[in-house]
Computed example of a mutant assay.
Amino acid sequence: MPFSNSTYDPETLALLQTAFDAAWEHISGSVAGYSAPDVETVRKLMAVSIMRAVDSGERDLHRLTFLAVQTATNVR
């Protein structure tokens, strides 16, 4: 599991959640025709992209959101 050793403080958790929510709001309409398992895959890939960026030191909300949207776009 790639994040088994990761722990996040409350501020970082809030950043992760905010970035994910913003990215999901941006792309949710474009996955409306996807099957439930495909939507779940997109959501997981978005979350992983945000966590990897945060684990690498990224803390800019807009960059994290962009990375997640870009990840979702590349899944199609």
Rank of each mutant, 00 (worst) to 15 (best):
A32E: 15
H26A: 06
L67F: 13
S56N: 11
S35T: 11
R52S: 13
D60F: 04
S49E: 03
L45K: 07
L64C: 03
R76C: 05
L16N: 11
H62A: 12
G57E: 09
V31C: 01
L67E: 04
G29C: 07
R76P: 02
T73M: 11
A22V: 06
P10W: 09
E40A: 08
L64D: 00
V42C: 10
Y8R: 09
E11Q: 09
S35V: 05
R63G: 07
A72P: 04
F20H: 00
K44V: 03
Y34H: 02
S49W: 07
F66N: 00
T12V: 13
T73N: 13
V69Q: 12
V31N: 02
L45S: 06
A22D: 10
E11K: 10
D9T: 08
Y8S: 08
D38Q: 13
V31Q: 03
Q70Y: 05
V31F: 01
D21F: 10
V54Q: 11
F3P: 05
I27C: 14
N5V: 13
A53I: 05
V69R: 10
T12L: 13
V31E: 02
R52F: 12
N5D: 15
V69G: 08
A32Y: 15
I50L: 06
R76T: 05
S56M: 07
R52Q: 14
L15C: 11
E58P: 10
A68L: 04
L45A: 00
Q70C: 03
N74R: 12
L13I: 13
E40W: 05
K44S: 09
M46W: 03
V42I: 14
